[in-house]
């Protein structure tokens, strides 16, 4: 589904160069749940943001469902409609109600008639457990509730793959669980997911594969069992010893 070949990304600010991604190659199959782990600054956010063109890789190729998003001729908006993204800071639209947040994109991008969009939207809100807050504005919700709305909003476009960029990092501990539950259900239903997170428990339970990144490169890839109990590389062992 997602085929990443040799991508690199360098950030230049003033006179300093930061090599965020160095020659990354990865493949994500349909239905897979891939968790990306690593210390801060390892490039995991940059990597996942490259997948939907929020950061533009300097070289290499990223092929999503057969379309190379780095090709200038590609209509990136069409690709993005099939790739859902959930952000660390939720990014809900504050001037719209919860339901409007969820129905805006389907109506405006996929031209879904309003009634149908509302019906589907309410079903999604029910799925994430927020249907009673449908007419409420985001600033009246807790962090955990907002993130669940954000997930529903992304799902409303019926994407083929969902990207999660540290979805629980900005949440108070007691709300992390509700969001992870939604994500676990999603995984169980067979959604292809790429998740950047620090939640080891989630990785162990749900991931099909774990990618460990450090200093812009992929250090180790493996199943959760392999990764957590029997890592190969020194840096992986170091990282795990600091986390667990």
């Amino acid at each position: 589904m997602i085929d990443v070949k040799n991508i690199s990304k360098t950030f230049v600010s003033h006179s300093t160069e930061v090599k965020a991604l160095v020659n990354i190659t990865a493949k994500i199959d349909p239905g897979e749940v891939v968790v990306v782990l690593g210390p801060s600054g390892s490039g995991k956010s940059t990597f996942i943001r490259c997948l939907n063109y929020l950061n533009v890789a300097d070289e290499g190729s990223i092929i999503i469902n057969g379309i190379d998003i780095l090709d200038p001729k590609t209509d990136i908006n069409k690709v993005r409609a099939d790739v859902g993204m959930v952000f660390q800071s939720f990014n809900l639209f504050p001037h719209k109600t919860v339901l409007e947040n969820v129905t805006l994109a389907p109506i405006v991008v996929r031209k879904v008639p309003k009634q149908e969009a509302v019906k589907k939207g309410m079903a999604l809100l029910k799925k994430v457990g927020i249907q009673d807050k449908a007419d409420v504005y985001p600033d009246q919700l807790s962090g955990g509730q907002q993130q669940r709305v954000a997930i529903a909003r992304a799902l409303a476009m019926e994407p083929k793959v969902m990207l999660f960029d540290e979805p629980t990092s900005a949440l108070d501990p007691e709300m992390v669980g509700e969001v992870l539950d939604v994500m676990k259900n999603l995984a169980r239903e067979g959604m292809t997911m790429v998740v950047v997170t620090h939640e080891m428990g989630f990785a162990r339970e749900v991931a099909d594969r774990v990618i460990f990144m450090d200093e812009g490169a992929i250090v180790e890839v493996g199943t959760p069992e392999h990764f957590f109990s029997n890592p190969t590389h020194e840096r992986t062992k170091l990282f795990l010893s600091q986390i667990l």
Binding site: L54, R80, N91, A105, V109, M157
Partner: peptide
């Protein structure tokens, strides 16, 4: 900036 990122990642064009 997150607002633009969220809108664009949902598939909206710049204008939308």
């Amino acid at each position: 900036r997150g607002q633009t990122e969220a809108a664009r990642s949902l598939g909206m064009t710049y204008v939308k």
